[in-house]
Design a protein around this nucleic acid. Sequence first.
DNA 1: ATGCTATATATGGCATTGCGATATATTATT
DNA 2: AATAATATATCGCAATGCCATATATAGCAT
Lengths: 117, 117
Amino acid sequence: MPYIASRVLERELKKGSAELLILSLVEDRPRHGYDISKLIETRSKGALKFNVASLYPLLYRLEKRGWIQGRWVEKAGQRRRRYYKLTLEGKKVLAAQRRGWRGFVEAINRITGMEHA
Amino acid sequence: MPYIASRVLERELKKGSAELLILSLVEDRPRHGYDISKLIETRSKGALKFNVASLYPLLYRLEKRGWIQGRWVEKAGQRRRRYYKLTLEGKKVLAAQRRGWRGFVEAINRITGMEHA
DNA sequence: ATGCTATATATGGCATTGCGATATATTATT
DNA sequence: AATAATATATCGCAATGCCATATATAGCAT
């Protein structure tokens, strides 16, 4: 029963940054859930992997809060997709979350002695 | 009912990095719980605040895993304190967690477009 | 035909766990 | 006498991440 610490850390950390990730990814263009999950995997080079059982409920929560707005898109020969776009309110939240993220990283680095990271 | 996004983010993120913070703080010298909680507050300039109802159970968990080792220190005119020191196993875990943290930050920055942060 | 993989969304339910609230104990300050 | 700071401890609720599973479509291999 080896305890793989860094993997645990990453799994735990992903939770808190999930909103920031999603909001960032729908910033430039509307995206559907599966697209978001794949983007997170590829852009992080496999370091982060979003479980769909976490992703979809989170998308619903963000939409309920009015940070993203979804609409169904039907296309022949394709399963229907729900594309989410960032709302005006969402833009403000994203800006705040980016500030929060930066401040948080600085705080952690200060405490753990990783200034130069 | 204003939704303070960055505060939510920080609270959520703190969870995952809690182990890294504690292990880092007992790296140079043994420290007791209250000391650790105060250090996190001061070194982060108030950005991070550890709830004691989270801190103490976490210390027990880390000790149970063998990453830190505690011992009671009694001193006249003082409430008894439990000083935790980093074990050999803990040192390895801390190194792995630091690598994990760095990789995680890089992954997030890549995904959210904050390379230059 | 059949099975497997990728795409795409959805959810029941369990297990984890963060934290508000509260408690106990000692010392110093007002 | 009351309050604040130091120091550790825990009950119990609420939040939520994810395993497992389900549904539906399309492409490709066997």
